[in-house]
Simulated scan of single mutants.
Amino acid sequence: MPDVLVRNIEEKTLNNLKKRAERNNRSLQAELKSLLELYAGPELEETKSMVRDVYMRYKATGKKFSDSAEDLSKDREG
């Protein structure tokens, strides 16, 4: 797997990242990797396409999605 080197990070930024890593029980490297993967994840159109594909596969089974609003109303009633 390739490595990335980031130079000249402000001390305050580095300290904030270290604190964040500690709160998440991660090393600094693991925290940075997690943040990069989060922010460099799939674009909106790619995500929509993935959801559409899953929906079409589910729909092809003949099953139907329940009405979540109706389900929530029932849950709240009792």
Rank of each mutant, 00 (worst) to 15 (best):
K63N: 06
E46I: 09
G78N: 04
V6R: 05
E46Q: 10
K18M: 13
D3G: 11
N24K: 15
Y39G: 15
N25P: 05
M1A: 11
S73C: 07
G41A: 03
K33S: 12
K19H: 12
K48W: 01
I9M: 14
T13H: 07
L72N: 00
Y58R: 03
Y58M: 07
Y58Q: 00
T61I: 01
K33T: 15
R26V: 03
D3H: 02
E77L: 12
A60H: 06
S68T: 11
L17F: 12
V54R: 03
K64H: 05
T13N: 07
K48P: 01
D67Q: 00
A30R: 12
A69C: 02
A30H: 10
M56E: 15
A30C: 05
S66V: 11
L32H: 12
K33Q: 13
N15K: 14
S68V: 15
E77C: 05
N15E: 15
P42R: 12
A30W: 09
I9D: 02
S27H: 06
A30P: 10
N15M: 09
A60S: 06
A60Q: 10
N25I: 05
A30Q: 13
V51S: 00
D53V: 10
F65V: 04
P2M: 05
D71A: 08
T61D: 03
T47A: 06
L17E: 03
M50I: 00
R23P: 06
E46L: 09
